[in-house]
């Protein structure tokens, strides 16, 4: 390197240069990640109210409160079901659509573009549209279902605990399945064609070819997609919050909404932070299991 010999930068040795080059990303990491995270963890040990911004150190009291609180356990169950259901259905629907869009047909490029539509639209617009569709009195969904005779009377989709949860799940699936389509479709396009040809010669029918070749080829990306979607959906706040606000009867009260309720509804910053820290630990756990599994797979 030129900096080694002579010149005004002669004092700069390779080790120093390395540190200097790392500094911007290290600082960014500290400021944007380590600081907020530590601050959040610190806050979870405080009783802090909006009128008392200094807060009082209460140790593990927030966690003790949390684990003894039925609403927390209920929200944890709802969040788990919500993440599991939306991710599972996104993967099934996304893979199915990707398989269809991988087949040659007229207007395929147009359809491939249109499929991305839900993913591209702003969440708030999507939610407003779905609130209209789901509306009990003048919603299009009820109109169509009644017209076709599938149901006798309109259903108040978002006002009953059971239907509200699944209605919210449906929107979550609809909004984010294009992400799965894009990734799976990209993977499908690089599966070597001669694997299918070899299988055809070996006597594999269409189903055997899907199971023995396609599924194994896309398995790796499905695992990555499952991890990414799980993190995203478990943390997702806006869909349930905007559609139902966590109701009715807490049926869609996911953990992020519970955090919001504690921190900004009841001004209990400490308790809100404690829930957020628990969510963080849960996701760390999920990722550890995932990577342990991947390591086992790859040898």
């Amino acid at each position: 390197m030129a900096v080694r010999s002579g010149g005004p930068l002669a004092w700069l040795r390779d080790q120093h240069l390395g540190v200097i080059l790392l500094l911007p990303s290290a600082l960014t990491f500290l400021v944007l990640l380590v600081f907020p995270l530590s601050y959040g963890i610190y806050t979870s040990f405080l009783q802090r109210h909006v009128l008392d911004p200094e807060g009082v150190w209460v140790g593990l009291a927030n966690y003790v409160w949390l684990f003894g609180n039925a609403e927390f356990w209920q929200s944890l169950a709802i969040s788990t079901l919500w993440a599991g259901a939306t991710v599972g259905l996104q993967i099934v629907l996304g893979t199915a659509v990707a398989l269809i869009l991988h087949q040659p047909f007229k207007g395929r490029s147009l359809v491939r573009g249109l499929v991305l539509f839900p993913y591209m639209m702003p969440v708030v617009s999507v939610i407003l549209i779905w609130m209209l569709l789901y509306n009990a009195l003048y919603g299009v969904l009820n109109y169509l279902l009644v017209q076709t005779g599938l149901i006798a009377a309109p259903i108040a989709w978002l006002s009953q605990p059971g239907s509200a949860f699944w209605s919210v799940v449906f929107v979550g699936v609809w909004k984010y399945f294009p992400f799965v389509v894009v990734i799976v479709l990209a993977r499908l396009q690089v599966i070597p064609q001669d694997l299918y040809e070899a299988a055809r010669i070996d006597g594999a029918g269409a189903i055997a070819r899907f199971v023995d070749i396609t599924l194994h080829q896309i398995k790796d990306v499905l695992l990555v997609v499952a991890l990414l979607r799980t993190i995203y959906m478990f943390n997702n706040f806006e869909i349930a919050f905007l559609l139902t606000g966590g109701g009715p009867l807490r049926a869609t009260m996911t953990l992020p909404i519970l955090v919001y309720e504690q921190a900004f509804g009841l001004y209990e910053m400490g308790r809100g932070s404690a829930i957020a820290v628990v969510m963080f630990l849960i996701l760390i756990g999920v990722m550890s299991v995932y990577f342990a599994f991947l390591r086992k797979e790859s040898d």
Partner: peptide, 27 residues
Amino acid sequence: PRDRNIAMVFQSYALYPHMSVRQNLEY
């Protein structure tokens, strides 16, 4: 192809990547 009683060797070999050699042979 399956009903012709032929076998083919491909330029890329087209071995099934997730199957062992034995599974490839007996597929």
